[in-house]
Design a protein around this nucleic acid. Structure first.
Lengths: 337, 337
DNA sequence: TGTTAGCACTTGGGCATGTTGAGTGCTAAG
DNA sequence: CTTAGCACTCAACATGCCCAAGTGCTAACA
């Protein structure tokens, strides 16, 4: 009983099943792959594989299908990432054409990824957790209304209009801005609250109240810049792979709509040496995704933000992983510039 | 052959079918509703209704189901909006708790509406079509990088970072800003392109190139501020009513993902005297929605922005219409404050 | 020890056939 | 205009049958 052949058999089963959606039997296996042994031998191997919980038979006289564990072994030890086709590379590279702002880039990216893989694609907005403050601006819109703008070195810009409470002048704002900036420029956004309090205290009495308001505005901006969002595309692909979700695609759609769930899911995916992480079926920490797999990776500075796809466990892992990785790399490059 | 009874029969058919999802026959009708006549009479009426294309039989020996045209007549002439339950009213009124910014309000609103109706809910962001320019700001981030901020009187703020092409100074920016502002302040966003071109031409030669870049930046901002967005919730409800979409929910999901399609759809829905518009099945201008119905209405100033739900043609119209209208009214009130 | 051929056995799926019941349209009488 | 009655249609269900695919096991073999 050769170990390598057993793996080869598992690989063949996974590939055939992913391709045909039908349980695969010993005979069909020896026909489609030249394994050099007879179907009886394969049967023995399959019995072993079943004992180990790597494959299972839906009913007595049917072929076998891979279990979650089987897929796991497949992606971990057997599969090599399938290189992308020239057309796919071209598609990725033409992604950049005419894209301007971050939102736009991300939107194009998820669309592309969902088309490449025929699955649902999700992308997390670039992290700004460790982002540092680069610039702030106060703009007087009306005697009491001030536009507060905050720019992080991640490139993200947040703004909001606040009511100063009392009338303020342009000069007041310039003064306040200079004071604020002096003590918070370059600081991590997370530290803003602690840093701002003393500055407000040191302001001239007449400006105490507007200063406090503006500081609070900055706090809120920093907060909402930290809070994470995501984009998604290709949900219609789920409908096509209806059959692959024995229950229904309902729970999957629910999971996708719960951004909180998705964000936790993505961020909990540990980084894999090969750079792409896969979470299969019941491995997922969320029940609704017990029949789905997630293929994800990090991108951007520190690979902190995640991008990935979600589909049925019966999925072409090698291609998906290759696509996710390629798109992530390209995305990193675009955003890095 | 009494006309009122015929309508009564149609109403009964629609109600029963919506309730049971099964073709309804003459006998079941006289049992469930006290129509005061025998099933044979009903059969005659039904034959008439079928001739007029209001109902149809899936096959010879089955009951009838309403056609698109039947539903249309139902919503136009027969149905009364079903008043909301006390619990539903309460749900709507507790919507406001803790909501702060517009995004948040809209998100809560669509969620609520999708839960109330068990359908997919969509809401368009409040229009800023006729918005006017209130303020612009240029902020120097790096020798060549300029943050362009545009504020509309609708309260919307758009910003983006542009590359000036050549080095510029703070003084340059102050000058440009003053010139630009002089000629476009208060102008409708739509007119920006025409107004900016001559200003750029009149700038000192040294500033021509950055001026052009900034003008283009403003154009784009005005454009993206005009461009409309929407939010959506409850797509998982589609999976539940899987059965109601004979083909698949795929096309519906596709339509929902195409914001362009959805926005056109919503804005093309003419206003109904009763305040809620319904578009049924093939009436929809988009093929993917030929088995779906849209119930929508306007909200906010001039009822310009739309909110609505999307579900299978076999839908509880009276309840849906009531829910949409109630939520829209409440939303108008919140935003109006 | 690993491989192979052969064989008995299991079982879901396809097919032909029969039965049932809901529902219709029509006719003739009230 | 309404109604009872009746012949007719047809999807849905059930039943029985057979077949093919696939398995596990055993015994022979290298």
């Amino acid at each position: 009983m050769s170990e390598p052949r057993k793996l080869e058999v598992l690989r063949a089963i996974v590939e055939d099943y992913v391709h045909s959606r039908e349980p695969v039997g010993s005979k069909a296996l020896v026909e489609r792959h030249h394994l050099g042994v007879s179907s009886a031998t394969i049967r023995n191997d399959m019995a072993l594989l079943e004992e180990e919980g790597l494959i299972a038979a839906p009913h007595t006289s049917a072929g076998r299908i891979p279990t979650d564990k089987g897929y796991r072994l497949f992606v971990d030890r057997i599969s090599a990432m399938k290189p992308l086709s020239a057309a796919e590379r071209r598609a990725i590279h033409s992604l950049l054409e005419g894209a301007d702002d971050v939102d736009d880039i991300l939107e194009r990216t998820v669309r592309l990824l969902s088309q490449l893989t025929n699955q649902v694609a999700v992308v997390q907005y670039p992290h700004s957790n460790q982002a540092r403050l680069r610039h702030i601006e106060f703009v007087l819109l009306a005697p009491r209304q001030v536009l507060v703008v905050l720019i992080a070195d991640s490139g993200k810009v947040e703004q909001r209009v606040v009511d100063a409470g009392t009338d303020v002048t342009d000069e007041d704002l310039t003064l306040l801005r200079a004071r604020f900036l002096a003590s918070i420029s370059g600081a991590p956004l997370a530290h803003l609250p602690q840093l701002l309090a003393p500055v407000v205290a040191l302001c001239p009495p007449a400006l105490q109240s507007p200063a406090a308001v503006l500081a609070r505005g900055l706090d809120k901006l920093a907060e909402s810049s930290r809070d994470e969002r995501m984009m998604m595309a290709g949900t219609a692909n789920l409908a096509r792979s209806n059959v692959d979700f024995p229950l229904s695609i309902g729970p999957v759609l629910e999971a996708l709509e719960e951004q909180v769930v998705m964000l936790r899911l993505l961020s909990e995916m540990a980084e894999d040496p090969r750079g792409v992480t896969v979470s299969i079926g019941r491995e997922n920490p969320y029940d609704g995704l017990s029949e789905a797999s997630v293929v994800a990776t990090g991108y951007g500075p520190g690979a902190a933000a995640k991008i990935g796809i979600i589909g049925p466990t019966r999925m072409d892992y090698p291609s998906s992983m290759a696509a996710v990785r390629a798109v992530a790399r390209y995305l990193s490059r675009i955003l890095g510039s």
